[in-house]
């Protein structure tokens, strides 16, 4: 008797499932997951562009260098601290000196608060000021993209990846009719998404 009841319940559940509008459910889920992914997508896309061009452009810091010719004939007799003060004066800087270092016998570096550096080039009789300004927003986005924060962000990144997979697959069933999946245009566009990466894979040296 109980066996029969279980079968009837199962058939009922199946008929309920048939009543679900899967097309609408898919569209609604695609829409809501899409909204949720906007923030993640912008973070990964913006920092992705920045990191992609790291060879040509520094995505984390804006760096500017100012070179000044100096009369440094008397500097060789001075202490490192005194030289550092003269270098600061030449560039009219008031920043605090963190430390100094002779990179080699021709170059003396003075490290300032914030990561900026003064360099005295004895050969060129030149003092260069390298000003370092962090790109705060991009730096934060890159930090998230490159997963420097670790911990729970790993799981959020995995969740984002899973949601992207869902968005890609659910997109297949979003539209019916003349713009539906079986039409030539969607097939061509979808194929390009596979062919282009494969082309680069095979042509890469």
């Amino acid at each position: 008797m109980t066996n029969w009841l279980t079968k009837i319940r199962f058939i009922n559940q199946l008929s309920q499932l048939k009543q679900v509008n899967w097309y609408r459910l898919n569209r609604n889920l695609h829409r809501d997951v899409g909204y949720f992914c906007i923030g993640f997508t912008l973070i990964f896309a913006i920092s992705g562009i920045a990191v992609n061009h790291v060879a040509d452009w520094n995505p984390n810091y804006a760096m500017t260098q100012v070179n000044l010719e100096v009369d440094d004939n008397s500097w060789t007799d001075l202490s490192d601290a005194a030289i550092a003060q003269l270098m600061l004066q030449r560039h009219q800087l008031t920043q605090e000196v963190k430390s100094t270092f002779w990179q080699n016998k021709h170059q003396f570096d003075v490290f300032l608060e914030g990561g900026s550096t003064l360099s005295w080039n004895r050969r060129a009789h030149q003092v260069s000021y390298l000003h370092v300004e962090p790109r705060v927003l991009l730096q934060a986005l890159n930090k998230l993209h490159l997963n420097e924060t670790r911990n729970a962000w790993v799981y959020f990144s995995d969740l984002f990846a899973a949601m992207l997979i869902f968005l890609a697959l659910s997109a297949l069933f979003m539209v019916k009719g003349k713009h539906g999946l079986k039409q030539p245009k969607p097939i061509i566009l979808m194929s390009l998404g596979f062919i282009i990466p494969i082309y680069f894979l095979f042509t890469a040296q």
Partner: peptide, 14 residues
């Protein structure tokens, strides 16, 4: 290796 640790430029001199 890239990304394993990321040292900030502001650390120079410390």
């Amino acid at each position: 290796k890239d990304g394993v640790m990321v040292f900030p430029v502001s650390a120079k001199g410390r």
